[in-house]
């Protein structure tokens, strides 16, 4: 059974169809990717899936439930967490407080018990801090918990965003270009982290431009171009698919390369 699927998912802006009748199918478990050239509609697709923008048409089914009409916060509470392409940390808050904020939908003690500082409140808050510290340890930021979020390096801010998304133990984690701006060593550490997240039982869906990263990690890859899905398959199938190569290189360059390859093959 699919954890997440969309049918005919469409988002139109004035004069532009950013996402055009996309049928996406993400099975439960493992690491999956959406790729495509710049402007293919990947980030819009993520915003549709997580409820940041409403769809113009089409449906989204998550864990058997139609969520297309739900606001973003309800989808997060159902177990959908994400990071952003342009990092969106709460910069005035500390590293630990950012992660605690990610735990919001899992906390339930009401305002009265909070003001009266009942044992229920104290116990829940203690557990929350312990979970947040565990999430920070998982991404390797345990030593930074009291630093202001905006004092972290770029790579650390990306990892903090992942910890904040991960702390609520989501069913599905959406990572929007997690390796952007990272050096090779940081990217390798990130690949290791994403693998550990998947092993822990969270399904991962990522958008990424770093093809080595995507091919190495992903079980399935969905390819978008100009808002349309042009292919979906395993990394091997994607690599062999002419339509994908054309989307990235342009039809003429792709044909030229193919001709060269065939000529070499024929010799």
């Amino acid at each position: 059974m699919m954890l997440l699927s969309t049918h005919n998912l469409t988002r139109r802006y004035a004069g532009l169809v950013a996402v055009d009748a996309v049928r996406l199918e993400i099975p439960e478990g493992g690491i999956h990717a959406v790729i495509g050239p710049n402007g293919a509609g990947k980030t819009t697709l993520f915003n549709l899936l997580t409820g940041i923008v409403p769809p113009s048409e089409g449906g989204i089914v998550f864990d058997g439930q139609d969520i297309a009409a739900l606001p973003a916060h309800r989808r997060a509470a159902l177990g959908m967490a994400r990071t952003f392409q342009n990092i969106r940390l709460f910069s005035s808050m500390s590293v630990l407080e950012n992660v605690l904020t990610g735990l919001h939908p899992r906390l339930s003690v009401g305002p009265l018990a909070t003001v009266l500082r009942l044992d229920r409140f104290r116990a829940e808050e203690r557990e929350a801090v312990a979970s947040a510290k565990a999430a920070l340890a998982m991404v390797g930021l345990a030593m930074e918990e009291n630093a202001p979020a905006d004092a972290l390096s770029y790579g650390d801010q990306r990892r903090l965003e992942i910890a904040r998304a991960l702390v609520a133990a989501p069913r599905l984690l959406l990572l929007d270009e997690p390796a952007a701006g990272m050096n090779p060593a940081e990217t390798a550490a990130l690949a290791d982290l994403v693998r550990r997240i998947a092993v822990g039982g969270t399904t991962v869906l990522l958008v990424e431009h770093d093809m080595g990263f995507v091919m190495e990690l992903s079980e399935t890859i969905t390819v978008l171009n100009f808002g349309r899905k042009i292919f979906a398959g395993t990394p091997e199938q994607v690599r062999a698919e002419p339509a994908v190569v054309e989307a990235y290189l342009g039809a003429r360059l792709a044909a030229k390369l193919r001709a060269q390859a065939e000529a070499q093959h024929g010799q």
Partner: peptide
């Protein structure tokens, strides 16, 4: 006391970034 709890965190989060707060499951 409200400020030092999940409510205070939610309030500060939405003050900084309402979209980010909604993505954290906060009903802004």
């Amino acid at each position: 006391l409200i400020g030092r709890s999940r409510f205070g965190r939610a309030m500060e989060a939405m003050r900084e970034d309402a979209t980010g707060a909604a993505a954290m499951g906060i009903d802004v």
